[in-house]
Amino acid sequence: MALLELKDVNTYYGAVHALRGISLNVNEGEIVTLIGSNGAGKTTTLRTISGLEHARSGSITLGGTPIHQAKPHEIVRLGISHAPEGRRVFARMSVRENLEMGAFLRKSGPEVQADFKKVFDLFPRLKEREFQAAGTMSGGEQQMLAIGRALMAQPKVLLLDEPSMGLAPILVEQIFDIIKEINSRGTAVLLVEQNAMMALGIAHRGYILQIGEITIEDDASALAKNPKVKEAYLGV
């Protein structure tokens, strides 16, 4: 059984039909990438999973439990963490306070302390800036913080919305290495990207999203070779 499963999900913004019957799944231990051009509905898909948008029809389950009626905070408790588009760090809080907020639903104690250490191991830059206000950090540092903050909830599934956006190529590579590392430690990842080449490089499987519909679904290596995908998303 899939860990996270969407079946025929429809989401609207008023009259705009943004998701037109999306079905996808993420299995335990996988990195799955969702690729599509601007306005295809990638962010809407993640926001619908997190409960920030309401699915008008269809179902979303996590480990078999339906979550499409749940509130965002309940979904976090069930094991889904979301590093949203545009980072959305708490600007007037320090790096440390931001990470503490990531662990909001957990009892503070040795386990949380150990996770602080893990996040600082993954992102040594965050340790250096532990007491700096998040809003004064560079875009790349804020992205690291957004991912680190999402990890502090100890998620079963991590949703990442364009973690490479606006970053220098070297930093992009670093972020993707870290995503692989996070996944190898046992967290399933649903990765939204416009940088299709990089995303397919680390993902196990992928979905192509076009105007609210999934048009192609395949193994990442197969997608990378698919002529239609190459033409539309890989700039070949």
């Binding site: 509130k71 963490s81 949203p84 959305r88 708490f90 809080m93 907020m101 903050r149 909830a153």
Partner: peptide
Amino acid sequence: TRTGKAMRTTSMDRDASSLMGVNID
């Protein structure tokens, strides 16, 4: 306090705050 911090994050960014597990209502 935890609730106090939830109030601060909710006033900074409601969506992001709910993604931390804060009960907005």
